[in-house]
Design a binder for these strands. Structure first.
Lengths: 230, 230
DNA sequence: TCAAAAGTGTTCTAGATACACCCATGT
DNA sequence: ACATGGGTGTATCTAGAACACTTTTGA
């Protein structure tokens, strides 16, 4: 802190913006909304809101995610704070960006209509307001880095998932094809998945076995070894 | 953004706090100051200051680092934003934390006196105000992760350094001993160091060859390959 | 019977780890 | 001559990459 007293200093509007990723089974998408107020009303934007007097940024992000998705306990992480003086055209606003991962199928059509929200494939993002494109790019990069060392990919899938589904998620995140034999070996060697005696039969005739993420096994690994994953 | 207008919302004080790391040849240290104003006057604290109306957080961090160290072009990176409602006891303040790496020998004794600043070994950090301990911990973790994949360790050393010096820096960061043969092989295999025909003779009779970081070679690698390092 | 996706093993290579002795020099 | 820190090479192990055929089953 400066040696000046607090009083002298300018207070600033602080907002939270959320980069929400979802996976529809084959493509990685981001949830955007049509902005409902000026400035830039009607243009595509990340979901956001101002931080209130009595809440932390985390709380604000949770509140905003809940408002848009109706979901609680969403996986969420702080990304970066954006503070360029002219980033918002209406007033000086500092934005703390969060990225969140949800299972796209849990997201209600209802809320999508209410908020004029839409899922966009990452390669087909429309022009966004302010510095939101930059936020999205940074979030995508963070997702790639994070998923390589932490088991967060499961947040984007239903509780039960097949290895082909998990693999195509990773392929979507990394934007490259993976070898299924190597993928399976690597992912199973972590010992954090449990195979179910049940098959998913929608997407193939043969059917693929379901797996579930075993949080308990993972926590044990965490405490035993270092932190590396995948 | 919310559908409410900007006007309705509460503005908040936003500060920047800097976690400054330095290396004295054998130990990794952090620079702390004795806080010069209320509340918590006289207690140990990170160097910080409020963001001004006409500057971004990055600019503020640069300004604050300059004020404390007299240095420009310091390696610096945004760490995290801290926003708990009661984190500052005097008023609601959101703090954007930055971590910085400097060569401890470039830091003037003069400025140290002026600001009542002191370098503390990371295992001997005194009690700090507010959530500054938490910031420091997070910065230390980020330094470990970052240094494993990016050549930022050099920022903590003089331009010319020996392999034993570089190794003891890594040992200080990772808090573990490294094998010198393996370390040398790994670090030289990156092809980003140039050996000089000159020896450092202070710390041993035999003397150790100086090396310099070759930014050009590094940039070439960056553009050619992926991003991995070390 | 055939189309479509699931499942399965082996070889090769590169990087990581473990480890011990000689060298140069100032005192 | 010896104490101090600098410098060097090899063997082993492990993780990642490359790669092609068989199995199941619904239509």
């Amino acid at each position: 802190m400066d040696i000046d007293s607090y009083k002298k200093h300018q207070k600033i509007l602080v907002a939270v913006d959320c980069i929400i990723f979802g996976f529809d089974g084959s493509e990685l998408k981001a949830l955007l909304i049509k902005r409902g107020f000026e400035p830039e009303k009607g243009r595509w934007s990340l979901m956001g809101g101002f931080i209130r007097e009595n809440e932390s940024a985390e709380k604000a992000a949770i509140r905003i995610l809940y408002k848009l998705t109706g979901m609680k306990d969403i996986y969420m992480e702080q990304l970066h704070s954006f503070s360029d003086v002219d980033r918002d055209t209406a007033d000086r606003v500092i934005s703390i960006a969060y990225f969140a991962l949800i299972n796209i199928k849990d997201y209600s059509e209802q809320l999508q209509l209410e908020h004029e929200a839409k899922w966009f494939h990452l390669s087909k993002i429309p022009p966004l307001i302010f510095d939101h494109k930059q936020m999205l790019k940074k979030a995508q990069k963070m997702l790639q880095e994070k998923v390589a060392t932490h088991p967060i990919g499961f947040e984007l899938l239903p509780e039960k998932f097949t290895l082909p589904q998990l693999q195509s998620l990773y392929e979507a995140i990394y934007e490259m094809p993976l070898d299924k034999r190597n993928f399976k070996r690597k992912i199973l060697s972590l010992n954090i998945l449990n195979k179910l005696n049940e098959k998913e039969k929608e997407s193939s005739r043969k059917g693929a076995f379901y797996y579930v993420f075993d949080e308990v096994k993972y926590e044990k690994l965490q405490s035993a070894n270092g932190v590396k994953w995948y």
